[in-house]
Amino acid sequence: MTAYIIRRLLITVPTIVLVTVVIFAIMRSMPGGPAQAMLGDQATPEAIKAMEQRLGLDQPFHVQYLAWVGNALRGDLGRSAFGNQPVSEILLQRIPPTVELAILAMLFSVAIGITAGVTAAVYHNSRIDAAASVLAILGVSTPSFWLGIMLVLVFSIWLRWLPSMGYTNLFIAPETNVRQMILPSLTLGAVMAAVVARQTRGAMLDVLYQDYIRTARAKGLVERVVLTRHALGNALIPVVTIVGLQLGQVLSGAVVVETIFALPGSGQLLVSSIFTRDFPIVQAVVLVMALIFTAVNLAVDLLYGVLDPRVRLS
């Protein structure tokens, strides 16, 4: 097991290197750079050139990349092209809101999704199934930005129950924080809940018609035991994969949700940094997201081994 984890971690290295190369290449193939973004349409070509020199953007691609890798390995992620702030300092401010949003949304979606999915599968072809399926379909068919706007319209502007934007540190003002996080995590969680529900239902249906379930039932086991001990455990395997894969979706969704709710998280930071070509920030955020994602992936694979003994981790 330990050997497996170590090997997996080693495998991660090329993945991460690949990620950084890809984002480095994409960012630098974009038209315009941080100088144009900052100085705007009234800057002279000289001013732009001077700024590019200051930011080291006049260097060849591989020199820039190797310099960045060298610094990153020493824990120095560089400084923002705008405002000269250390990127690590910016990340420390911007990652907590996204992590909180992601966790809340994931919890919400897993709780709702698995319950709905299992219920729908157990009562296959009944009205409950139809209702759950319709709800799940509604969920996956709604653009999340649309849902977010509707929630704001109803709960913030009409009813004035919840704030429409902003973020307060959880540990400084827990109540404000929770109130501010409700709408964003609902928006983000709803779509995911629908995806999880659909996958759970599918997986449960697969499992429920297997011979061993029939055997279990024939043995006279109580249906609840059949469902929880025999069916759900097996059905969870593909669901775990999907939830793991959903993490990518969470971060994608966070981009949109953070924009709608003006939530100062890393998704919004990433999008605006792409638009303003703030290379050091884009690279660092992508790197961190890739690390998180890889870690979760490893966890999913380990869970896989726990849930399905036939998958040997070797």
Partner: peptide
Amino acid sequence: FKGIPDATVVLNGVRSKQI
């Protein structure tokens, strides 16, 4: 000072008393 490019988000914020 908060930078919010989306004027619709801003207007919602003003109406819900956060801006």
